[in-house]
Computed example of a mutant assay.
Amino acid sequence: MVFVTKFRHKVFTDRHLTRMEAIMRDVCADFEAELVQFNGEDNHVHLLVNFPPKVAVARLVNSLKGVSSRRLRQEFPDLARHYYRANKLWSGSYFAGSAGGAPLNAVQQYIEQQNRPG
C-alpha cells in the first residue's frame, strides 16, 4: 500500500515515520493483520501488509490513515501547518496492490530502499 500526503506536502521526518510505523502496526493488529514492512519519504509511505481475506482493503486503509492522522496531530503539534485544508494529512487516494505473484523479498527490498528523511 502507498499513502501520499495531501497536496504531496513534504511533511515527515524520521521521528514522524518511526512513530507512524508503531501506530500502523497497532492498527494492523486490530484487524488481525501483520505490518511486514514499513518505510517512507517526506511525502508518502509504503506498507507491506499481510491481512486475512475477510478484511476489506478499504476499511483497513481508512483505519490506517484515520488513526495515524489523528494520533500524529495529537503527538506532533508541529504538523498542524500541514492540515490547513479540510484538516487532513493524507490525500483521499491510495494505492493497494497484491504481491502474491512477486517474490516477497523483492517487495520488501523496494520498500527498504525508500529515501527516508533524516
Rank of each mutant, 00 (worst) to 15 (best):
L35V: 07
L35R: 01
L35Y: 03
V36R: 09
V36W: 00
V36E: 13
V36H: 06
Q37K: 14
Q37M: 12
Q37D: 05
Q37F: 00
Q37E: 15
F38K: 04
F38S: 03
F38H: 00
F38C: 05
F38G: 04
N39E: 07
N39K: 07
N39S: 12
N39A: 10
G40S: 07
G40R: 02
G40L: 01
G40D: 06
G40C: 03
E41D: 06
E41K: 00
E41A: 10
E41V: 08
D42M: 12
D42R: 06
N43R: 12
N43S: 12
H44N: 03
H44C: 04
H44K: 07
V45C: 07
V45M: 07
V45K: 01
H46Q: 08
H46E: 05
H46W: 04
H46G: 09
H46P: 11
H46K: 11
L47M: 15
L47R: 03
L47G: 06
L48M: 14
L48N: 05
L48S: 09
V49F: 04
V49P: 01
V49Q: 03
N50K: 14
N50P: 00
F51M: 03
F51E: 00
F51K: 04
F51P: 00
P52V: 10
P52T: 09
P52F: 04
P52H: 13
P52D: 11
P53R: 12
P53W: 09
P53L: 12
P53I: 10
P53Q: 11
P53A: 13
K54M: 13
K54Y: 13
K54G: 06
V55K: 03
V55Q: 03
V55N: 02
V55H: 01
V55I: 14
A56P: 01
A56Q: 14
V57D: 08
V57K: 11
V57Q: 06
V57R: 06
V57M: 10
V57C: 13
A58C: 14
A58V: 14
A58Y: 01
R59M: 12
R59P: 02
R59Q: 13
R59W: 09
R59A: 13
R59D: 15
L60F: 07
L60T: 05
L60P: 02
V61F: 03
V61D: 02
N62A: 14
N62H: 14
N62S: 15
S63N: 13
S63W: 03
S63I: 05
S63G: 07
S63P: 05
S63F: 03
L64A: 10
L64D: 07
L64Y: 01
L64V: 09
K65E: 04
K65A: 03
K65M: 08
G66P: 02
G66R: 05
G66Y: 01
G66V: 04
V67F: 03
V67H: 02
V67K: 08
V67N: 08
V67I: 15
S68I: 08
S68K: 01
S68P: 03
S68Y: 00
S69G: 14
S69V: 07
S69H: 00
S69C: 10
S69E: 07
S69A: 15
R70G: 09
R70L: 13
R70D: 11
R70N: 11
R70S: 12
R71E: 12
R71Y: 02
R71T: 11
L72Y: 08
L72T: 10
L72D: 07
R73K: 15
R73T: 12
R73E: 11
R73G: 06
R73Y: 13
R73N: 10
R73D: 11
Q74C: 11
Q74M: 14
Q74T: 12
Q74N: 14
Q74W: 06
